[in-house]
Computed example of a mutant assay.
Amino acid sequence: MRRAGWIAGAASAVLVAAGGVTCAVAGDDGGGAGAPPPAASSADAGFARDMAVHHQQAVEMSYIVRDRTDDVEVRRLAYDIAQTQANQRGMLLGWLDLWELPKVSADPPMTWMGMRGAPSEGDGALMPGMATDAELARLGKLRGRQAEVYYLRLMTEHHKGGVHMAQACAARCTVGVEKRLARGMAEAQESEIGLMTDMLRERGA
């Protein structure tokens, strides 16, 4: 119960903070009054585009496992991750609209971080930490404890990739509220990695 309360409390705090960030971004251009919006090739735009895609898969995996297990703890974690990341994804896409920038780019993912090309071409993993097409298909076939363990392993790796990207934005992005959101994402996902490690250990994995 203590852990469940922590998860729910953390998710609620992130959602409340996210709402404040959404309201504030229009007035925080990161470069002073009258500064132009970020360029399409900027770290700000690249992070918004790539993290929106990254988050979408986390939402998808979380809804898959929710229907594959009756475990209350895993279902609650999956629901919190899905709700938090869906909310953040909406913010990221909203910023791109606000900046009048495209939501897709001809450049490979993570180019804004100095990285080029998918980490493992041909298997469906667009960015580090993201599950492959085969892994998503497998998750959709498992049930019970097997689904729980597989989801926790996939989401742990997914969070590690997300933390790497969020830390890069915190270092490279120029829009103040986006940098703060990125730092918050990294801290929250690092905490959830610890939580999921404990949940895996409890399941003998």
Rank of each mutant, 00 (worst) to 15 (best):
M1G: 13
G5S: 08
W6A: 14
I7Q: 12
A10W: 08
A11N: 10
A11I: 04
A11Q: 06
S12K: 12
A13C: 04
L15A: 12
V16Q: 13
A17H: 11
G19W: 06
G20S: 05
V21G: 00
V21W: 11
V25G: 02
D28E: 12
D28L: 07
G30P: 01
G32R: 00
A33P: 09
P36M: 04
P37V: 13
A39Y: 06
S41P: 00
S41Q: 07
S42D: 07
A43T: 03
D44Q: 03
D44V: 06
A45D: 06
F47G: 00
R49C: 00
R49S: 04
D50M: 02
V53W: 07
H55E: 03
Q57K: 07
A58D: 01
E60P: 00
E60Y: 06
S62A: 14
S62T: 00
Y63R: 15
Y63S: 06
R68D: 05
R68M: 10
T69G: 03
T69L: 05
D70P: 01
D70V: 13
D71Q: 09
D71Y: 01
V74G: 01
L77R: 00
A82L: 01
T84P: 02
T84Q: 05
A86W: 09
A86I: 04
Q88T: 03
Q88M: 09
Q88D: 11
R89K: 10
G90A: 06
G90D: 07
M91C: 01
M91F: 15
M91N: 11
M91A: 13
L92D: 01
L92Q: 03
L93S: 06
L93C: 00
G94H: 09
D97M: 05
K103N: 04
V104A: 12
V104Q: 13
V104I: 13
V104E: 09
V104F: 10
S105L: 04
A106P: 00
P108L: 03
M110W: 14
T111M: 10
M113Q: 15
G117I: 10
E121H: 08
D123Y: 07
D123K: 03
D123E: 11
D123C: 10
A125F: 04
G129W: 02
G129D: 01
M130R: 04
A131V: 14
T132M: 03
D133W: 13
A137T: 14
R138M: 14
R138V: 11
L139T: 05
G140I: 01
G140N: 10
K141F: 03
L142H: 10
Q146T: 09
V149W: 00
Y151P: 00
Y151G: 05
L152Y: 01
R153Y: 02
L154Q: 11
L154A: 08
M155E: 06
K160A: 15
G162A: 06
V163F: 07
H164R: 15
M165P: 00
Q167D: 12
A168N: 05
C169L: 11
A170P: 05
R172E: 14
R172L: 15
T174G: 09
V175C: 13
K179Q: 15
R180S: 12
L181G: 03
R183T: 14
A186Q: 07
E190G: 08
S191Y: 12
E192W: 10
G194M: 10
L195A: 15
L200C: 05
L200V: 01
R201L: 14
R201Q: 12
R203K: 12
R203G: 08
